[in-house]
Design a binder for these strands. Structure first.
Length: 484
DNA sequence: TTTTGAGTTGTTCGA
DNA sequence: GTCGAACAACTCAAA
C-alpha cells in the first residue's frame, strides 16, 4: 500500500502568485502534497489595520489565486484570526511536516512570523521562509562603513553593483494537492467589498487584479510604453506609467520578474526607458530598506527636528483636500482620481501631497493615512517613505523651500488639460489657458463655460503666494527653534 | 580622521 | 519670453 507523505502548508501573504514563488516551489519540491493557506489577520498582533482599497483588491486577488491553484490541482483555504494561532493550528490539523512562506518586512509582521517559526519548530514541523517580494533583502545593502544607506543614489548604485537579481522560478506545471479534510471560511463572509455605497465601482473598470492581469499589464507596458517612459512618466494626461504598483503590492508579480522582463524587452527594443523605469523599482527597494531599518517609518519623522513643526490642525482643510474640493484643479483632479480608481499618477501624488503639507500645513501623517486607506497600492514602505520625502522630513528629502506651484505643475504636465477635464468635469468647458487657475479667468470666460466659483466649483481655499510665504516662515522658525 | 563632492521630481525674481 | 542665480545649509558616503 503506497503511503502519501505528510503534507506541506504554504502560507500566502503579500505574494498572491504561482510563478516565481519560492515558498510554493520549495513546498512542491519537497514531494509532499501541498495545501495553500491565506489568513485574514488584519489588525492583529500590533499590525497596522489595512485600508478599504486594500480590502477590495485582496478579495479580487484571492479569487484569482484560488482559481489558479485549483486549475493546477491545488487548493486554497481561508481562515481568519491571529496568524500566530491560526497557522500552527492549521498545520497541526492537517499533520503538516513543512510550512513555507515568503518574507515580509514590517516589524510587527516579522515578529509574528518569528513566533510562528519558533512554535512550529517546537512541534517538530519544519518552517522555512524565502525572499520573494524584493530584488534583494533589505539588510544586504550597506555602505562601505557597514551602515544602512540614507541616500537613494548611492543605495541604488550599491544595490546594482551586487549584480543581477536571482533567476525567476517557473510557474509550477501541476500541483499535487492535499486531499484530506480541512475547513475553509467563505471569502464573502469577510466583508471585504463595499456595498452601500459601492465606492469601488470605478475600481473594477480601472483594474484587473490577479496574477494574469499583472502579467498582461507588464507585457503591455514593456511593449507599448517603456520606450516613452523616461519622457512621458510625468504626464498624467498620458498613459505611460506601468500601473504595476498594486500588482507589486499584492505580489501578483515580483520585482524579480519585472527586472528580467525589462532587460529582455530592452534587448529587443533598445534601452530607452529601461534605467529610468528600473530606478523606480529601485525606489521601492530603497523604501523597504528604510522601513526595515526604521520600523516606525509611517509615524515618526526621520529628521527629528520636524517633531516641533507647527502643523495646522484643521479638519475642514483636510476634508476639502480628501474630497478634491480645494479649488486647485490639478490637486482636485488627483484626489478624485484616487477616490474613483484607488490610484493616482505619481506626478500628481507629489503635487497633491505637497499641497496638503505645505499649502495647508497639515501633518503629513494625515495624508499618509488617507492614502493608506484609499490607494490600492497602499504600501507600508513606499507610502510612508514618499510622504516623508515630500514633507521634507524624510531620508534624502526634497529641500523645504521646494514648494510646488499647483498652477505651474498643471500647465507643465497636463498641457492640454485633458487630465483635469477628465476628473473635474465641471471645469471641462474652460479654455485651457484658464483651466489650471479658474479664479484668474475673466468673468465672461467663466460664465461661458458654465462655471460659477463658489457654486459649481470651489474658490481656492488658500492663496498660493500667501500659503507659500507661511510655509517658508514655518520652516524658518523650525530651524531657529532647532538652533536655540 | 578629514576632506570632498553630491544629493529624484522646483519656484521665483530680476536682468 | 528667456535665462541664470538664489533659495540654506546639511548630511551622507566614499576617498
Amino acid at each position: 500500500m503506497p503511503s502519501v507523505p505528510a503534507p506541506a502548508l504554504v502560507w500566502f501573504r503579500d505574494d498572491l502568485r504561482l510563478a516565481d514563488n519560492p515558498a510554493l516551489c520549495h513546498a512542491l519540491a519537497s514531494g509532499r502534497p501541498v495545501l495553500a493557506l491565506f489568513v485574514f489577520d488584519d489588525g492583529h498582533a500590533g499590525q497596522r489595520r489595512r485600508g478599504g482599497a486594500w480590502r477590495w483588491w485582496l478579495a479580487q486577488s484571492l479569487r484569482h489565486l484560488a482559481a489558479a491553484l485549483a486549475a493546477k490541482g491545488g487548493r486554497l483555504i481561508l481562515r481568519s484570526g491571529p496568524a500566530g494561532e491560526v497557522v500552527p493550528r492549521v498545520a497541526r490539523e492537517i499533520d503538516a511536516k513543512l510550512v513555507t512562506w515568503n518574507r515580509r518586512y514590517e516589524a510587527a509582521a516579522m515578529a509574528v512570523d518569528a513566533g510562528i517559526k519558533t512554535a512550529l519548530t517546537g512541534d517538530h514541523i519544519a518552517a522555512e521562509s524565502f525572499s520573494a517580494t524584493l530584488l534583494r533583502e533589505p539588510w544586504t545593502v550597506k555602505s562601505q562603513a557597514g551602515q544602512p544607506m540614507k541616500v537613494f543614489t548611492p543605495f541604488w548604485k550599491a544595490h546594482q553593483a551586487k549584480g543581477e537579481p536571482r533567476a525567476t522560478l517557473p510557474e509550477p506545471a501541476a500541483i499535487s494537492g492535499f486531499e484530506g479534510p480541512v475547513a475553509s471560511e467563505n471569502l464573502d463572509d469577510w466583508g471585504l467589498e463595499p456595498h452601500a455605497p459601492n465606492w469601488a465601482e470605478g475600481f473594477a473598470e480601472a483594474w484587473q487584479p490577479g496574477e494574469a492581469g499583472a502579467r498582461e499589464r507588464l507585457a503591455d507596458f514593456l511593449d507599448e510604453q517603456l520606450v516613452a517612459y523616461a519622457e512621458g512618466r510625468d504626464r498624467p494626461d498620458l498613459a505611460v506609467t506601468s500601473r504595476l504598483s498594486p500588482h507589486l503590492r499584492f505580489g501578483e508579480i515580483s520585482p524579480v520578474q519585472v527586472w528580467h522582463a525589462t532587460h529582455m524587452a530592452a534587448e529587443h527594443r533598445g534601452p530607452q526607458g529601461q534605467a529610468k523605469f528600473l530606478s523606480e523599482i529601485g525606489w521601492r527597494e530603497f523604501s523597504y530598506h528604510l522601513l526595515y531599518h526604521q520600523p516606525d517609518l509611517a509615524s515618526a519623522n526621520i529628521q527629528k527636528r520636524f517633531d516641533h513643526f507647527p502643523w495646522v490642525s484643521d479638519h475642514a482643510r483636510l476634508a476639502a483636500w480628501q474630497r478634491g474640493l480645494t479649488g486647485f484643479p490639478i490637486v482636485d483632479a488627483g484626489m478624485r482620481e484616487l477616490w474613483r480608481t484607488g490610484w493616482m499618477h505619481n506626478r500628481v501624488r507629489m503635487v497633491a501631497a505637497s499641497f496638503l503639507v505645505k499649502h495647508l500645513r497639515v501633518d503629513w501623517r494625515a495624508g499618509e493615512a488617507w492614502f493608506w486607506d484609499t490607494l490600492v497600492d497602499a504600501d507600508p514602505a513606499s507610502n510612508a517613505a514618499s510622504w516623508q520625502w515630500v514633507a521634507g522630513c524624510g531620508a534624502d528629502a526634497a529641500p523645504f523651500f521646494r514648494i510646488f506651484n499647483p498652477m505651474t505643475q498643471g500647465e507643465k504636465f497636463d498641457p492640454a488639460g485633458d487630465y483635469v477635464r477628465r476628473w473635474v468635469p465641471e471645469l471641462a468647458k474652460l479654455p485651457t489657458a484658464a483651466l489650471q487657475q479658474p479664479w484668474s479667468a475673466p468673468a465672461g470666460v467663466l460664465a461661458g463655460a458654465g462655471v460659477t466659483l463658489g457654486v459649481t466649483y470651489p474658490k481656492p481655499i488658500v492663496d498660493h503666494a500667501r500659503a507659500r510665504e507661511q510655509a517658508l516662515a514655518a520652516f524658518a522658525h523650525l530651524k531657529e527653534g532647532d538652533a536655540g
